[in-house]
Amino acid sequence: MSHIKLQNLRFFVAVYEEGSISAAARKVHATQSGVSVQVRDLEDHLGVVLFDRISTGVSPTTVGDQIYRRAVRILREVGLLEADVTAQSGDLTGEVRVGIMPTFARAILSPVLARFSDDNPHVDVKVTEGYSALLTRMVLMGELDFAIVPDGDIPKGLRCTFLDTDLELLVCHRPVESVSGNVDLSAIPPLRLVLPGPGNARRAKIDQRLRNVPEAVHRILEMDSMMTTLGIVRQGDWSSILPGCLCLPDMDDPEIHLYPIMRPLMTVDYLMIEPATQAQSAAVRLFAERLTAEIRDSCEICRRHFANLDDRM
Score class of each variant (00 low, 15 high):
H3L: 14
K5Q: 15
F11W: 13
V13D: 02
A14E: 04
A25H: 00
A25T: 03
K27R: 13
V28R: 04
A30S: 13
G34P: 01
V35R: 04
V37G: 05
E43P: 03
V48S: 02
V49K: 11
V49R: 11
S55G: 07
V58R: 01
V58F: 00
P60N: 07
T61F: 03
T62R: 10
V63Y: 00
V63S: 05
G64W: 04
G64Y: 04
G64A: 10
Y68K: 06
R70H: 11
V72L: 11
V78Q: 11
G79I: 03
E82N: 13
T86L: 06
T93G: 14
E95V: 13
R97C: 09
G99E: 10
G99N: 06
M101N: 14
A105L: 05
I108N: 00
L113R: 09
A114E: 15
F116K: 08
D118S: 14
D119C: 09
D119L: 14
V123C: 05
D124G: 12
V125L: 06
E129C: 11
G130T: 06
G130D: 11
V139G: 01
G142M: 11
D145T: 07
D145E: 06
F146P: 01
I148K: 02
P155A: 10
K156W: 05
T161I: 14
F162R: 14
D166V: 07
L170R: 00
V171F: 04
H173M: 11
H173S: 12
V176I: 14
S178C: 12
S178V: 15
G181K: 05
L185N: 01
I188K: 05
P190T: 07
L195C: 00
L195H: 02
L195V: 11
K205Y: 09
Q208P: 02
P214E: 01
E215Q: 08
E215C: 03
H218D: 01
R219D: 12
L221P: 01
E222W: 06
S225Q: 06
T229K: 09
T229S: 10
V233Q: 02
D237W: 09
I241Y: 05
L242K: 01
P243F: 04
L246M: 12
C247K: 03
M251V: 13
P254T: 08
E255P: 02
I256Y: 00
L258A: 01
L258R: 02
M262A: 10
M262E: 10
V268S: 06
V268T: 09
I273Q: 00
E274A: 13
P275E: 13
A276T: 06
L286F: 07
A288V: 10
A288C: 14
L291V: 13
L291C: 05
A293N: 09
R296Q: 11
D297P: 00
S298W: 05
S298T: 13
E300Q: 14
E300I: 10
I301G: 03
R304L: 09
M313H: 11
